[in-house]
């Protein structure tokens, strides 16, 4: 190792002389940290005053062994802020009458991310109108 001066003491001394690989590592790391700071700064300027934008999309349904029906969906947050404790409600409607309601809560739907979940119904969703949507959120 082309290391620093061979001082014999309890604390290690950083000398002037260093192997080129130390400078290369240091240089790459400086660039990485600078890039990260740059990205966060850009994000800070862009995201100020944003709010969560939640959208639910149904992925599909299949019968469960217990005789019910599982409807899986994704909930996407297109906004720049994270939503917490997001209740997602699924209503099976026949005209104006609600036949069945099921609800689950997502702990978090992070900004610009998606989470998946499944609602379990007793009646067949294919035979009725199915509405799934987020009914609110809290700020984390």
């Amino acid at each position: 190792m082309a290391d620093a001066t061979p001082v014999k003491s309890n604390s290690r001394t950083v000398g002037r002389g260093a192997h080129w690989i130390e400078w290369l590592t240091g240089g790459i790391c400086t660039l990485l940290v600078a890039a990260m700071i740059g990205w966060i700064t850009y994000h800070a300027i862009v995201s100020s005053g944003g709010m969560p934008q939640l959208a639910v999309q149904i992925l599909g349904q299949q019968p469960t062994p217990g005789g019910g029906y599982a409807v899986s969906f994704t909930i996407e947050n297109k906004g720049l802020r994270t939503a917490a404790s997001v209740p997602v409600k699924g209503d099976l409607m026949d005209g104006d009458t609600v036949i069945e309601t099921q609800e689950i809560t997502f702990d978090y739907v992070p900004a610009q991310s998606a989470a998946t979940g499944t609602l379990l119904f007793r009646s067949d969703p294919a035979a009725h109108d199915l509405h799934i949507g987020a009914s609110g959120y809290t700020d984390p």
Partner: peptide, 23 residues
């Protein structure tokens, strides 16, 4: 703790050790 030898500017250790450590 580590010491800088007197002729070494502070940013030598900063670039060579602290920033790689953070990464």
């Amino acid at each position: 703790g580590h010491e800088l030898s007197s002729d070494t500017p502070w940013w030598h250790a900063f670039i060579r050790f602290t920033l790689p450590g953070y990464v």
